[in-house]
Design a protein around this nucleic acid. Structure first.
Lengths: 172, 172
DNA sequence: ATTGCATGTAAGTAAGTACTCACTTTAACA
DNA sequence: TGTTAAAGTGAGTACTTACTTACATGCAAT
Protein backbone atom coordinates (compact mmCIF):
# COMPACT_ATOMS: atom_id res chain seq x y z
CA UNK A 1 0.00 0.00 0.00
CA UNK A 2 1.53 3.30 -1.10
CA UNK A 3 1.27 6.42 1.03
CA UNK A 4 -1.21 7.84 -1.47
CA UNK A 5 -3.43 4.80 -1.04
CA UNK A 6 -3.11 5.06 2.72
CA UNK A 7 -4.32 8.65 2.62
CA UNK A 8 -7.31 7.65 0.48
CA UNK A 9 -8.14 4.73 2.72
CA UNK A 10 -8.06 6.76 5.93
CA UNK A 11 -9.98 9.63 4.35
CA UNK A 12 -12.68 7.29 3.03
CA UNK A 13 -13.18 5.71 6.43
CA UNK A 14 -13.23 9.00 8.34
CA UNK A 15 -15.39 10.94 5.85
CA UNK A 16 -17.86 8.04 5.68
CA UNK A 17 -18.13 7.69 9.46
CA UNK A 18 -17.77 11.27 10.73
CA UNK A 19 -18.62 13.47 7.75
CA UNK A 20 -16.36 15.62 5.59
CA UNK A 21 -16.42 18.72 7.78
CA UNK A 22 -15.71 16.90 11.03
CA UNK A 23 -12.39 15.50 9.76
CA UNK A 24 -9.24 17.64 9.49
CA UNK A 25 -6.42 17.09 7.02
CA UNK A 26 -3.99 17.08 9.97
CA UNK A 27 -5.80 14.15 11.60
CA UNK A 28 -5.93 12.22 8.32
CA UNK A 29 -2.18 12.70 7.84
CA UNK A 30 -1.46 11.56 11.39
CA UNK A 31 -3.58 8.41 11.10
CA UNK A 32 -2.11 7.55 7.68
CA UNK A 33 1.38 8.25 9.07
CA UNK A 34 2.34 10.72 6.37
CA UNK A 35 3.15 14.43 6.46
CA UNK A 36 0.20 16.74 6.04
CA UNK A 37 1.86 18.38 3.02
CA UNK A 38 1.69 15.13 1.08
CA UNK A 39 -2.10 15.28 1.02
CA UNK A 40 -1.88 18.56 -0.85
CA UNK A 41 0.88 17.30 -3.16
CA UNK A 42 -1.36 14.45 -4.29
CA UNK A 43 -4.83 15.96 -4.15
CA UNK A 44 -4.28 19.73 -4.30
CA UNK A 45 -6.89 20.45 -1.62
CA UNK A 46 -9.09 18.72 0.94
CA UNK A 47 -11.97 19.02 -1.53
CA UNK A 48 -9.76 17.43 -4.19
CA UNK A 49 -9.25 14.47 -1.89
CA UNK A 50 -13.01 14.11 -1.53
CA UNK A 51 -13.46 14.45 -5.29
CA UNK A 52 -11.08 11.54 -5.89
CA UNK A 53 -13.09 9.37 -3.50
CA UNK A 54 -16.30 10.47 -5.19
CA UNK A 55 -14.98 9.39 -8.59
CA UNK A 56 -14.14 5.95 -7.24
CA UNK A 57 -17.61 5.82 -5.70
CA UNK A 58 -19.30 6.71 -8.94
CA UNK A 59 -17.54 4.02 -10.94
CA UNK A 60 -18.47 1.49 -8.28
CA UNK A 61 -22.09 2.61 -8.51
CA UNK A 62 -22.13 2.28 -12.27
CA UNK A 63 -20.67 -1.23 -12.05
CA UNK A 64 -23.27 -2.24 -9.47
CA UNK A 65 -26.19 -1.10 -11.57
CA UNK A 66 -24.94 -2.41 -14.91
CA UNK A 67 -26.45 -5.93 -14.72
CA UNK A 68 -29.92 -4.49 -14.18
CA UNK A 69 -29.49 -2.11 -17.11
CA UNK A 70 -28.36 -4.89 -19.43
CA UNK A 71 -30.73 -7.70 -18.45
CA UNK A 72 -32.42 -9.42 -21.40
CA UNK A 73 -35.94 -9.49 -19.98
CA UNK A 74 -38.04 -7.43 -17.57
CA UNK A 75 -38.38 -10.36 -15.16
CA UNK A 76 -34.62 -10.84 -15.14
CA UNK A 77 -34.03 -7.14 -14.53
CA UNK A 78 -36.35 -7.19 -11.51
CA UNK A 79 -34.66 -10.33 -10.21
CA UNK A 80 -31.22 -8.72 -10.52
CA UNK A 81 -32.32 -5.66 -8.56
CA UNK A 82 -32.40 -7.81 -5.46
CA UNK A 83 -29.19 -9.69 -6.29
CA UNK A 84 -27.54 -6.31 -6.16
CA UNK A 85 -28.53 -6.10 -2.49
CA UNK A 86 -27.40 -9.65 -1.71
CA UNK A 87 -24.00 -9.07 -3.25
CA UNK A 88 -22.84 -5.83 -1.63
CA UNK A 89 -19.18 -6.37 -0.79
CA UNK A 90 -18.38 -5.44 2.84
CA UNK A 91 -15.08 -4.03 1.52
CA UNK A 92 -17.18 -1.36 -0.21
CA UNK A 93 -19.41 -0.49 2.75
CA UNK A 94 -17.54 2.77 3.38
CA UNK A 95 -18.08 3.91 -0.19
CA UNK A 96 -21.84 3.53 0.24
CA UNK A 97 -21.75 5.20 3.62
CA UNK A 98 -19.89 8.08 2.04
CA UNK A 99 -22.58 8.28 -0.60
CA UNK A 100 -25.27 8.70 2.06
CA UNK A 101 -23.19 11.45 3.66
CA UNK A 102 -22.83 13.28 0.34
CA UNK A 103 -26.46 12.89 -0.72
CA UNK A 104 -27.66 14.91 2.28
CA UNK A 105 -26.00 18.24 1.65
CA UNK A 106 -24.91 19.49 -1.79
CA UNK A 107 -27.49 18.79 -4.49
CA UNK A 108 -25.31 15.74 -5.36
CA UNK A 109 -25.31 14.63 -8.99
CA UNK A 110 -26.47 11.06 -8.73
CA UNK A 111 -29.54 12.45 -10.47
CA UNK A 112 -28.69 11.88 -14.10
CA UNK A 113 -27.80 8.20 -13.76
CA UNK A 114 -30.53 7.70 -11.15
CA UNK A 115 -33.10 8.80 -13.74
CA UNK A 116 -31.87 6.19 -16.25
CA UNK A 117 -32.15 3.56 -13.53
CA UNK A 118 -35.65 4.74 -12.62
CA UNK A 119 -36.73 4.58 -16.26
CA UNK A 120 -35.38 1.05 -16.49
CA UNK A 121 -37.34 -0.03 -13.40
CA UNK A 122 -40.43 1.68 -14.74
CA UNK A 123 -40.14 -0.26 -18.01
CA UNK A 124 -39.58 -3.58 -16.23
CA UNK A 125 -42.57 -3.07 -13.96
CA UNK A 126 -44.84 -2.13 -16.84
CA UNK A 127 -43.77 -5.27 -18.76
CA UNK A 128 -44.56 -7.27 -15.63
CA UNK A 129 -48.12 -5.92 -15.57
CA UNK A 130 -47.99 -3.41 -12.69
CA UNK A 131 -50.83 -0.89 -13.19
CA UNK A 132 -48.88 2.22 -12.14
CA UNK A 133 -45.31 1.46 -13.21
CA UNK A 134 -43.87 4.94 -12.67
CA UNK A 135 -44.90 5.34 -9.07
CA UNK A 136 -44.17 1.69 -8.49
CA UNK A 137 -40.63 2.27 -9.82
CA UNK A 138 -40.16 5.25 -7.54
CA UNK A 139 -41.31 3.13 -4.61
CA UNK A 140 -39.10 0.17 -5.53
CA UNK A 141 -36.16 2.54 -5.85
CA UNK A 142 -36.74 3.89 -2.35
CA UNK A 143 -37.21 0.40 -0.92
CA UNK A 144 -33.95 -0.87 -2.40
CA UNK A 145 -32.11 2.28 -1.40
CA UNK A 146 -33.26 2.08 2.22
CA UNK A 147 -32.40 -1.63 2.36
CA UNK A 148 -28.90 -0.90 1.04
CA UNK A 149 -28.55 1.81 3.66
CA UNK A 150 -29.51 -0.57 6.45
CA UNK A 151 -27.11 -3.19 5.12
CA UNK A 152 -24.06 -0.92 4.99
CA UNK A 153 -24.85 0.58 8.39
CA UNK A 154 -25.20 -2.99 9.70
CA UNK A 155 -28.75 -2.50 10.89
CA UNK A 156 -30.22 -5.43 8.94
CA UNK A 157 -29.30 -8.69 10.66
CA UNK A 158 -31.72 -10.94 8.74
CA UNK A 159 -30.54 -9.62 5.41
CA UNK A 160 -31.27 -12.69 3.24
CA UNK A 161 -34.74 -13.26 4.69
CA UNK A 162 -35.70 -9.62 4.22
CA UNK A 163 -34.43 -9.49 0.63
CA UNK A 164 -36.35 -12.63 -0.32
CA UNK A 165 -39.43 -11.10 1.30
CA UNK A 166 -38.99 -8.07 -0.94
CA UNK A 167 -38.25 -10.12 -4.04
CA UNK A 168 -41.53 -12.02 -3.69
CA UNK A 169 -43.40 -8.73 -4.15
CA UNK A 170 -41.78 -7.82 -7.45
CA UNK A 171 -40.27 -10.93 -9.04
CA UNK A 172 -42.22 -13.97 -7.83
CA UNK B 1 -39.24 37.29 18.53
CA UNK B 2 -36.64 37.45 21.32
CA UNK B 3 -32.92 37.27 20.61
CA UNK B 4 -32.86 33.76 22.05
CA UNK B 5 -35.55 32.66 19.61
CA UNK B 6 -33.69 34.31 16.75
CA UNK B 7 -30.57 32.31 17.58
CA UNK B 8 -32.56 29.07 17.66
CA UNK B 9 -34.28 29.86 14.39
CA UNK B 10 -31.07 30.66 12.53
CA UNK B 11 -29.26 27.66 14.03
CA UNK B 12 -32.09 25.30 13.07
CA UNK B 13 -32.08 26.50 9.47
CA UNK B 14 -28.30 26.39 9.09
CA UNK B 15 -27.75 23.06 10.89
CA UNK B 16 -30.57 21.46 8.88
CA UNK B 17 -29.27 22.74 5.54
CA UNK B 18 -25.48 22.69 5.94
CA UNK B 19 -24.84 20.29 8.82
CA UNK B 20 -23.70 20.99 12.37
CA UNK B 21 -19.96 21.02 11.68
CA UNK B 22 -20.18 23.31 8.67
CA UNK B 23 -21.81 26.13 10.64
CA UNK B 24 -19.84 28.37 13.03
CA UNK B 25 -21.23 30.11 16.09
CA UNK B 26 -19.84 33.39 14.73
CA UNK B 27 -21.88 33.07 11.53
CA UNK B 28 -25.03 32.18 13.48
CA UNK B 29 -24.58 35.26 15.69
CA UNK B 30 -24.05 37.50 12.67
CA UNK B 31 -27.14 36.23 10.85
CA UNK B 32 -29.27 36.44 14.00
CA UNK B 33 -27.88 39.94 14.65
CA UNK B 34 -26.74 39.22 18.19
CA UNK B 35 -23.31 39.09 19.79
CA UNK B 36 -21.58 35.74 19.68
CA UNK B 37 -21.26 35.71 23.46
CA UNK B 38 -25.05 35.60 23.86
CA UNK B 39 -25.17 32.16 22.29
CA UNK B 40 -22.97 30.89 25.10
CA UNK B 41 -24.93 32.76 27.75
CA UNK B 42 -28.12 31.02 26.70
CA UNK B 43 -26.90 27.59 25.57
CA UNK B 44 -23.54 27.18 27.29
CA UNK B 45 -21.89 25.63 24.21
CA UNK B 46 -22.47 25.02 20.51
CA UNK B 47 -23.43 21.45 21.40
CA UNK B 48 -25.89 22.83 23.96
CA UNK B 49 -27.55 24.84 21.22
CA UNK B 50 -27.92 21.68 19.13
CA UNK B 51 -29.27 19.79 22.15
CA UNK B 52 -32.00 22.39 22.64
CA UNK B 53 -33.04 21.99 19.00
CA UNK B 54 -32.96 18.22 19.38
CA UNK B 55 -35.33 18.38 22.35
CA UNK B 56 -37.79 20.44 20.34
CA UNK B 57 -37.41 17.95 17.50
CA UNK B 58 -38.14 15.00 19.74
CA UNK B 59 -41.32 16.48 21.16
CA UNK B 60 -42.49 17.27 17.64
CA UNK B 61 -41.81 13.66 16.62
CA UNK B 62 -43.73 12.29 19.57
CA UNK B 63 -46.71 14.52 18.74
CA UNK B 64 -46.65 13.42 15.09
CA UNK B 65 -46.74 9.73 15.94
CA UNK B 66 -49.28 9.93 18.74
CA UNK B 67 -52.46 9.52 16.63
CA UNK B 68 -51.15 6.25 15.18
CA UNK B 69 -50.26 4.95 18.64
CA UNK B 70 -53.71 5.80 20.02
CA UNK B 71 -55.95 4.71 17.14
CA UNK B 72 -58.87 2.51 18.19
CA UNK B 73 -58.56 -0.09 15.42
CA UNK B 74 -55.78 -1.56 13.28
CA UNK B 75 -57.37 -0.25 10.08
CA UNK B 76 -57.56 3.23 11.55
CA UNK B 77 -53.93 3.10 12.67
CA UNK B 78 -52.79 2.18 9.16
CA UNK B 79 -54.94 4.91 7.69
CA UNK B 80 -53.43 7.49 10.04
CA UNK B 81 -49.88 6.49 9.09
CA UNK B 82 -50.46 8.10 5.72
CA UNK B 83 -52.32 11.12 7.12
CA UNK B 84 -49.12 11.82 8.99
CA UNK B 85 -47.40 12.26 5.63
CA UNK B 86 -50.18 14.41 4.18
CA UNK B 87 -50.13 16.75 7.16
CA UNK B 88 -46.45 17.60 7.55
CA UNK B 89 -46.35 21.31 8.29
CA UNK B 90 -43.90 23.17 6.02
CA UNK B 91 -43.03 25.27 9.07
CA UNK B 92 -41.51 22.12 10.55
CA UNK B 93 -39.56 21.01 7.46
CA UNK B 94 -36.27 22.15 8.96
CA UNK B 95 -36.81 20.05 12.07
CA UNK B 96 -37.19 16.92 9.92
CA UNK B 97 -34.21 17.88 7.80
CA UNK B 98 -32.19 18.27 10.98
CA UNK B 99 -33.32 14.82 12.03
CA UNK B 100 -31.96 13.30 8.81
CA UNK B 101 -28.66 15.11 9.45
CA UNK B 102 -28.44 13.76 12.98
CA UNK B 103 -29.48 10.20 12.12
CA UNK B 104 -26.44 9.75 9.87
CA UNK B 105 -23.64 10.19 12.36
CA UNK B 106 -23.93 9.51 16.10
CA UNK B 107 -25.90 6.37 16.89
CA UNK B 108 -28.85 8.76 17.46
CA UNK B 109 -31.42 7.66 20.01
CA UNK B 110 -34.59 7.58 18.02
CA UNK B 111 -34.31 3.85 18.55
CA UNK B 112 -36.35 3.40 21.70
CA UNK B 113 -39.46 5.22 20.48
CA UNK B 114 -38.93 3.87 16.95
CA UNK B 115 -39.23 0.35 18.34
CA UNK B 116 -42.59 1.16 19.96
CA UNK B 117 -43.79 2.56 16.65
CA UNK B 118 -42.55 -0.52 14.78
CA UNK B 119 -44.36 -2.81 17.24
CA UNK B 120 -47.54 -0.83 16.72
CA UNK B 121 -47.28 -1.16 12.92
CA UNK B 122 -46.53 -4.85 13.28
CA UNK B 123 -49.67 -5.34 15.37
CA UNK B 124 -51.83 -3.37 12.94
CA UNK B 125 -50.56 -5.32 9.94
CA UNK B 126 -51.12 -8.66 11.65
CA UNK B 127 -54.72 -7.64 12.53
CA UNK B 128 -55.19 -6.71 8.87
CA UNK B 129 -54.16 -10.21 7.75
CA UNK B 130 -50.66 -9.64 6.39
CA UNK B 131 -48.79 -12.96 6.49
CA UNK B 132 -45.41 -11.59 7.63
CA UNK B 133 -46.34 -8.59 9.79
CA UNK B 134 -42.91 -7.95 11.30
CA UNK B 135 -41.03 -7.63 8.04
CA UNK B 136 -44.00 -5.86 6.54
CA UNK B 137 -43.85 -3.35 9.40
CA UNK B 138 -40.15 -2.79 8.86
CA UNK B 139 -40.83 -2.22 5.15
CA UNK B 140 -43.74 0.14 5.79
CA UNK B 141 -41.59 2.09 8.23
CA UNK B 142 -38.88 2.54 5.60
CA UNK B 143 -41.41 3.50 2.94
CA UNK B 144 -43.00 6.17 5.12
CA UNK B 145 -39.62 7.44 6.27
CA UNK B 146 -38.30 7.81 2.74
CA UNK B 147 -41.51 9.52 1.62
CA UNK B 148 -41.20 11.99 4.51
CA UNK B 149 -37.62 12.62 3.53
CA UNK B 150 -38.57 13.37 -0.05
CA UNK B 151 -41.38 15.65 1.11
CA UNK B 152 -39.21 17.80 3.41
CA UNK B 153 -36.41 17.98 0.84
CA UNK B 154 -39.06 19.03 -1.70
CA UNK B 155 -38.32 16.18 -4.06
CA UNK B 156 -41.88 14.85 -4.22
CA UNK B 157 -44.00 17.10 -6.43
CA UNK B 158 -46.99 14.75 -6.76
CA UNK B 159 -47.20 14.25 -3.03
CA UNK B 160 -50.95 13.53 -2.73
CA UNK B 161 -51.03 11.10 -5.64
CA UNK B 162 -48.04 9.18 -4.33
CA UNK B 163 -49.42 8.96 -0.79
CA UNK B 164 -52.77 7.64 -2.03
CA UNK B 165 -50.88 5.12 -4.15
CA UNK B 166 -49.13 3.94 -0.99
CA UNK B 167 -52.28 3.93 1.11
CA UNK B 168 -54.01 1.59 -1.32
CA UNK B 169 -51.40 -1.04 -0.54
CA UNK B 170 -51.91 -1.03 3.21
CA UNK B 171 -55.28 0.48 4.02
CA UNK B 172 -57.57 -0.11 1.04
C1' DA C 1 -31.94 54.28 46.92
C1' DT C 2 -29.78 49.88 46.48
C1' DT C 3 -29.21 45.42 45.75
C1' DG C 4 -29.34 41.46 42.69
C1' DC C 5 -30.01 39.30 38.52
C1' DA C 6 -30.93 38.32 33.71
C1' DT C 7 -29.81 40.13 29.21
C1' DG C 8 -26.57 41.83 26.42
C1' DT C 9 -21.94 43.32 24.22
C1' DA C 10 -16.95 44.02 22.55
C1' DA C 11 -12.71 42.44 22.78
C1' DG C 12 -10.24 39.18 23.77
C1' DT C 13 -7.79 33.93 23.95
C1' DA C 14 -5.60 29.54 22.77
C1' DA C 15 -6.11 25.93 19.87
C1' DG C 16 -7.18 24.35 15.38
C1' DT C 17 -7.95 25.05 10.32
C1' DA C 18 -6.55 24.42 5.31
C1' DC C 19 -2.81 25.27 2.83
C1' DT C 20 2.29 26.76 1.31
C1' DC C 21 7.12 26.69 0.92
C1' DA C 22 11.86 25.56 1.02
C1' DC C 23 14.01 21.71 1.30
C1' DT C 24 15.57 16.45 1.24
C1' DT C 25 15.12 11.70 -0.27
C1' DT C 26 14.26 8.14 -3.64
C1' DA C 27 14.70 5.93 -7.78
C1' DA C 28 14.59 5.44 -12.81
C1' DC C 29 17.41 6.25 -16.84
C1' DA C 30 20.65 8.46 -20.56
C1' DT D 1 27.55 8.51 -12.73
C1' DG D 2 25.16 12.52 -12.91
C1' DT D 3 20.49 14.44 -14.10
C1' DT D 4 15.84 14.82 -13.43
C1' DA D 5 11.39 14.39 -11.63
C1' DA D 6 8.44 12.70 -8.48
C1' DA D 7 7.59 11.54 -3.55
C1' DG D 8 7.96 13.14 0.81
C1' DT D 9 8.85 16.26 4.93
C1' DG D 10 8.42 19.77 8.72
C1' DA D 11 7.99 24.17 9.91
C1' DG D 12 5.69 27.87 8.74
C1' DT D 13 1.44 30.98 6.99
C1' DA D 14 -2.94 33.71 7.65
C1' DC D 15 -7.19 32.82 9.24
C1' DT D 16 -11.10 30.62 11.81
C1' DT D 17 -12.73 28.07 15.63
C1' DA D 18 -15.40 27.58 20.10
C1' DC D 19 -15.35 29.78 24.09
C1' DT D 20 -14.25 33.50 28.00
C1' DT D 21 -13.96 37.67 30.35
C1' DA D 22 -14.82 42.31 31.82
C1' DC D 23 -18.06 45.37 31.62
C1' DA D 24 -22.76 47.85 30.54
C1' DT D 25 -27.80 48.05 30.70
C1' DG D 26 -32.56 47.59 32.22
C1' DC D 27 -35.69 46.19 35.90
C1' DA D 28 -38.01 44.08 39.72
C1' DA D 29 -37.84 43.36 44.88
C1' DT D 30 -36.08 44.82 49.32
Amino acid sequence: MTKKERILSVALYRFAHEGYNAVSTASIAKEAEVSEGLIFKHFKSKQGLLDTLREELESKMAAKVQPVMEAATAAEALHLVFDLLLNVDPVDFNYWRLQYQLKLNEAYEGHRSAQLYLDRLSWALQESGFPEPEMEAQLLFEIVDSALKRIVFEELPEKEKYIEFLRKKYAP
